[in-house]
Amino acid sequence: MDFFRKHIARKIVIVFLLFLNLFLQTSVAAWFSPHAIFPNFFVILTSLIGFLNGKKAGIFTGLISGVLIDLYSTTPFGFHILCLVYIGYCSGYLKRTFYHDDVVLPSLLVGACDFVYNLVMFVFFFLLQGNTGFNYYFVHTIFPDVLMTMLVTLLIYQFVHKVDQKITAYEKGKEVERD
């Protein structure tokens, strides 16, 4: 039971959130026009959990996100794992220098991560297939995507932070009682 508290509980919550994400990003996104810009919650979660809990949690979230996307989509298996694990890892680097009450910094960093992710996607799925209309993609897809993702981060950061605090309290719960 102690092991569950310390090591498993957080992971279960993360996996659950990511599954929720997958349906949000695919089924719910299909309710809207194909040109509606949808925030990338996978990047948001991976990056935020990296910030809040450090590299290992970031890597874990990135890995599960990547596996889910790779299982779902038709792109070569492993591509998204690679991208998202690095996003989680790099976000984890900023853990110590990061004040948890600040909302602007995390959304800026999520924006940066999303930009890099989109850029990599563009290079591999458009540039290498002979499409070079970067300017248009930048203005009409990548830029609004990054803005939307940052905006949503501003909105849901407090929620993720609260959930993180709750889990942390739960993890430490038994130890405090013993002390």
Binding site: L22, Q25, T26, S27, A29, A30, P34, I37, F38, N40, F42, I69, Y72, S73, T74, T75, Y117, N118, M121, F122, F125, F126, Y137, T141, I142, P144, D145
Partner: peptide, 9 residues
């Protein structure tokens, strides 16, 4: 039933 990819690109 869904979009085939999770990104806007």
């Amino acid at each position: 039933i869904a979009k085939s990819d999770t990104t806007n690109i």
